[in-house]
Simulated scan of single mutants.
Amino acid sequence: MTEESKKYAYFLGCITPNRYPGIEAATKTILKEFGIETEEMMGASCCPAPGVFGSFDMNTWLPVAARNLAIAEEMDLEIVVTCNGCYGSLQEADHLLRANPKLKEKTNKILGEFGREFKGTTKVNHSLVVLHDVIGLDRLKEKITKPMDDVNVAVHYGCHFLKPREVRGHGSSEDTYILEDLAQITGAKTPEYKDKLMCCGAGGGNRTADAVQSLEWMRQKLVSAIEVGCDCMIHPCAFCHLQLDRGQEEMEKAFGIFLNFPILFFTQFLGLAMGLSVKELGLDAQVTTMPDKLLK
């Protein structure tokens, strides 16, 4: 999408509108600051989840994802997402259907029963990439009014943003740069930490199937960030946000430990650096609280 394209179909997914509307508010506010509008995809369903759903029943997963893509095509807009799971499902479904004519024909036969068709005319964009590549670092930096010069940020990518790298198209899944770039334009530092590329602990149904193990993975990740002096963690995934924020309350019940390590969606972090309030960014509705260091 070019800079002149000013509107996206916003695929909200499940977690953002139902559990963390602050992610939606922060993202829409920042996009609008740069002249980019979003339009909701009326009638869209769950993406559906790439791991739990897509891994077990592709024959159902793919038509559901294709239906969502078809809605955006009918709007004549590209899609923007704020969840890695949604990104993974929709982008991979688009990739599979474009690459396999027989699969496309089979899927469209199902969609045709509901008056829809996948044509392959939309594109799935992560909001992180829209800010980094479409708006650009220089324009974003011009809007920073509250520099984060003394803040150390742990970046967390999650599982579905970087991999499979041939489909995602963001370069190496080991040598990362996009979140680091966005944090650093605020003046923040992004120290390396041991479990930087580790899952948040919730993926693949683990949060539901084995809650204690899921929380232990999360605990290890957060502690490894704290040990190198990080003040907060930023990420690009609504589902990771649920695990990393709400999970700290669950971890207190399970292990008797409450870290209160601040968790921010990347647009919430940028929003603070741009002078937006905790309330405007929905940070007042989270389990973890923001320290004065982030609110100066």
Rank of each mutant, 00 (worst) to 15 (best):
4 E>I: 11
5 S>F: 10
10 Y>Q: 06
14 C>K: 00
17 P>D: 12
17 P>C: 14
20 Y>T: 12
21 P>W: 13
23 I>M: 12
24 E>H: 13
26 A>L: 01
28 K>Y: 01
30 I>W: 00
33 E>V: 03
34 F>G: 02
42 M>A: 12
48 P>C: 09
49 A>P: 09
50 P>E: 05
50 P>C: 03
50 P>D: 06
51 G>Q: 11
52 V>P: 00
54 G>M: 04
57 D>P: 00
60 T>L: 10
62 L>R: 05
62 L>T: 14
63 P>H: 04
66 A>C: 04
70 A>K: 10
71 I>T: 08
72 A>T: 04
74 E>Q: 13
74 E>W: 09
83 C>S: 09
86 C>G: 14
90 L>E: 05
92 E>I: 14
92 E>P: 01
92 E>A: 08
93 A>V: 10
93 A>E: 09
100 N>W: 09
104 K>D: 00
106 K>V: 15
109 K>I: 00
110 I>K: 12
110 I>F: 08
115 G>T: 02
119 K>N: 05
124 V>I: 15
126 H>G: 05
135 I>P: 03
139 R>K: 15
143 K>R: 11
144 I>G: 08
147 P>W: 00
148 M>C: 04
149 D>P: 00
150 D>P: 05
151 V>H: 02
152 N>D: 07
153 V>A: 03
153 V>K: 00
158 G>M: 08
158 G>P: 09
159 C>S: 06
165 R>W: 06
165 R>E: 13
167 V>L: 01
171 G>K: 08
178 I>W: 02
180 E>W: 01
182 L>G: 01
186 T>D: 14
187 G>Q: 10
188 A>G: 08
188 A>C: 06
190 T>H: 01
191 P>N: 05
191 P>S: 05
193 Y>D: 07
194 K>H: 11
195 D>S: 09
197 L>D: 04
198 M>I: 11
202 A>T: 15
202 A>I: 10
203 G>C: 10
207 R>P: 13
209 A>L: 11
209 A>T: 12
212 V>C: 04
213 Q>W: 07
213 Q>A: 12
214 S>V: 11
215 L>M: 09
217 W>I: 14
219 R>V: 02
221 K>Q: 01
221 K>E: 01
222 L>E: 11
223 V>G: 11
223 V>F: 13
232 C>G: 02
232 C>Y: 01
236 P>N: 07
236 P>W: 05
243 Q>E: 15
243 Q>N: 15
244 L>G: 03
244 L>S: 06
245 D>V: 14
245 D>F: 12
248 Q>F: 07
248 Q>D: 13
248 Q>L: 14
249 E>V: 09
249 E>H: 12
249 E>Y: 11
253 K>I: 12
253 K>N: 10
254 A>Q: 08
256 G>S: 13
256 G>Y: 12
256 G>M: 13
257 I>N: 13
261 F>I: 06
261 F>S: 07
264 L>V: 06
271 G>E: 04
275 G>S: 02
275 G>H: 01
278 V>T: 14
280 E>A: 02
281 L>P: 12
282 G>R: 07
283 L>S: 01
285 A>Q: 13
287 V>G: 00
289 T>D: 04
289 T>I: 02
289 T>K: 11
291 P>I: 04
291 P>Y: 04
293 K>L: 00
295 L>T: 15
